[in-house]
């Protein structure tokens, strides 16, 4: 079990949003304010970790033919828990996230991790995988939320940051702003990864 590799995989090299391009729908839809991003990110971390643990525990019992259905049932159970908790303690957040909390059931990140990681690895590794992949997702959400809320509404977490004279760039809170933001982030990620790969290649050459 390589914790360090799992950590960098989750946050950078195998980032669920920027590299695996999973969970695009919720990423584009809810990143209009930092509060939304935080709520969504934390919900996904909790659900992803718990479902990874349980699917890893059940991996030897679940028949291969109906595994997807089994995963969905496990995931849906945790999503329901989180949704009920949100409704009880953070009704405002629940309202602004709307349908995207129940939609976590079919979020590709969670199903993807269950299929590609939790169903093949031990409980501990799966739990860590859930946490790190969830953190990677949350980090991207927060970066997008930061730019979209700041430029689109001039606020962060609802607090006015930019001066009143700033004209809100309404574009950024519209869906098109989400696409632009995500595109720019993916491009930046690819650029950084290419640069890192080039550097590594150069270093290897020198070592030889």
């Amino acid at each position: 079990m390589n914790v360090k590799k799992q950590f960098t995989d989750g946050l950078l090299t195998q980032n669920p949003v920027l590299v695996q391009l999973l969970g695009m729908c919720s990423t584009l839809a809810i990143t209009t304010s930092v509060m939304n991003g935080l709520g969504m990110g934390v919900s996904v971390i909790i659900i992803l970790t718990l479902s990874n643990i349980f699917i890893s525990l059940l991996r030897k019992i679940i028949p291969n033919e109906v595994r997807i259905a089994c995963y969905i049932i496990v995931i849906a159970g945790f999503v329901t828990c989180v949704q009920l908790l949100l409704k009880a303690f953070l009704p405002e957040l629940d309202k602004s996230l709307g349908v995207f909390i129940p939609l976590i059931v079919v979020n590709c990140i969670i199903l993807g991790r269950a299929e590609s990681f939790a169903s093949k690895n031990a409980v501990g590794a799966s739990a860590l995988d859930g946490i790190f992949q969830g953190l990677g997702y949350t980090a991207v959400l927060l970066v997008m939320c930061f730019f979209r809320e700041l430029l689109g509404a001039g606020t962060l977490l609802g607090v006015r940051i930019l001066p009143e004279s700033y004209t809100n760039m309404g574009l950024m809170t519209l869906p098109v702003g989400g696409f632009l933001c995500l595109g720019a982030l993916i491009a930046a990620m690819q650029w950084a990864m290419n640069r890192a790969a080039e550097k590594r290649a150069a270093a290897e050459k020198e070592a030889k």
Binding site: T167, M169, G170, L171, M172, L174, V176
Partner: peptide, 10 residues
């Protein structure tokens, strides 16, 4: 197109 979408009024 971006300006119109971002600042429709002005």
């Amino acid at each position: 197109a971006v300006l119109v979408a971002a600042y429709a009024g002005p």
